[in-house]
Design a protein around this nucleic acid. Structure first.
Lengths: 126, 126
DNA sequence: CCGTATCCTGAAGGATACTG
DNA sequence: CAGTATCCTTCAGGATACGG
């Protein structure tokens, strides 16, 4: 069986790149929300409870770099900005939905494991 | 549009749990390799170039906790251990394969973005 | 051959305060 | 309203050395 080289796994592997992007904390939430239509930052902040301005901007810039999100600025006062998925971004909705669907089907297992892990972490603390 | 609550996003969301597991550095590689059949640690180390003993064990333990991998010990000298996917683990091969397929189809975009990001990170260093 | 225990660094991400 | 700049804590993950 052929080994998977370091470079292959670290750099070339588009799969891991994609997984790393998709697992950034607010990425799935943002992509899902934007899949419902273009949104203003304020709306996104209200929709994603707990996200800070910093993380919102940072994650959106990140997604812009990936060509997944497009930013439109309306030159008015007060400022008006809108974010929307690009065509590439739209193509990313489906894989996330697949993962989401799978996670829902197996949510029992996942939930069980998660509470176990939480418990063991806490009992290891003191 | 209903907001996504903090708890919902942090804790309950099986999707993010799953994505976090799947994006741990060696998880996709291990699951893929084990999908080809049960393997001994030595074989896994050789197959996943660059993985350290520590990360191999740690990741495998992690996957065991998730009920995704099963560990069999043969009581002989020298020690003989084998790792294999559980039924739940088998069910995880498909979503990873889907992500992988999607990443391959769009590898052009991903590669382009990645090299751009590398470059910008390096130019920001000095 | 297989596993564990330490130490260390970088990066993710939260809190807070400031600008236009 | 939208965005930037700092500071700080946490933790993934690599290197290394030891044990059964």
């Amino acid at each position: 069986m052929r080994p998977i080289s370091k470079e292959e796994y670290d750099l070339k592997c588009a799969t891991r790149q994609l997984l790393e992007l998709m697992s950034e904390k607010w990425v799935p939430g943002l992509i899902y929300t934007l899949s419902l239509g273009p949104q203003r930052p304020g709306a996104l902040t209200r929709r994603l409870e707990g996200i800070s301005k910093k993380m919102l901007t940072q994650t959106l810039r990140n997604l812009e770099d990936w060509g997944v999100v497009h930013r439109t600025v309306f030159e008015v006062v007060p400022p008006h900005v809108e974010y929307a998925l690009t065509p590439l971004g739209e193509k990313m909705v489906e894989p996330i939905a697949l993962i989401h669907g799978w996670a829902q089907e197996n949510r029992e297992n996942i939930a069980m494991v998660f509470t176990q892990r939480l418990a063991s972490k806490q009992s290891a603390k003191p």
